[in-house]
Amino acid sequence: MANTQLLEDITTQVRRDILRMVHKVNSGHPGGSLGCAEFFVALYNEIMDRNDGFDMDGIGEDLFFLSNGHISPVYYSVLARAGYFPVDELNTFRLINSRLQGHPTTHEGLPGIRIASGSLGQGMSVALGAAQAKKLNGDNHLIYSLHGDGELQEGQNWEAIMYAAGNNVDNIISTIDLNGQQIDGSTDTVLPLGSVKGKFEAFGWTVVEIEEGNNIEAILKGMAEAKALTGKGKPVCVLLKTVMGNGVDFMMHTHAWHGKAPNDEQLAEGLLQNPETLGDY
């Protein structure tokens, strides 16, 4: 049984990390990062079967791929707090000579990262390749991936979605962060996605919906359901309904904080709403 309170505490600390990281360099993407904090914390601390340390090939463990690389703050915070690299290194986010580049990359050798992402729409293809490598290696572990909803406007996703079902890649759980927002406004106003569930199902995927995508228990329950659906000949998609900017009231329900850092006062207000739990870096 998962220790939900511990996961909540980690999440609160991760929110603080996100706010402080983007505030320090006055750049980065807090909105989507905050919206996915619970998901990342649950994934790395409860859901995935991970080996100690980091090995690029990841044989004998579950692997995660982030496609919408701009939410790097949440990724870096969760990786550091899961032990992949020193938490103090979060201080170097987006600074020159840092391993914590604006968007995640393997180029500087940051443990935990297996592919560069940032240019959108490429992560699902990579995740599918890794899933097929697992099958060739007789490795029964799973591939997890995360994608933005706006990102689905990139055509490569649909090549990958068609390929996964056509080739029975059933050892992958691809989660879509369904927050309904992108840089220029809501997804409905920029380029309507229509029914994401209907589209995935029409392409031959099994779809699991998590209505409360910022609720740890709901995430654990939904992801357990998704995991139970793997190995049955079809790829599995999780539609995670999140609130952009979750946990910082003035950042919620708007695309305004997609790629904007808080000022000093806003940082103080955000931190006040998220008291220190594990200790700041």
Binding site: L63, R114, S125, V126, L128, G129, A133
Partner: peptide
């Protein structure tokens, strides 16, 4: 992309 993933 699939090729890149297969290297992992």
């Amino acid at each position: 992309g699939v090729a890149a993933g297969l290297t992992i």
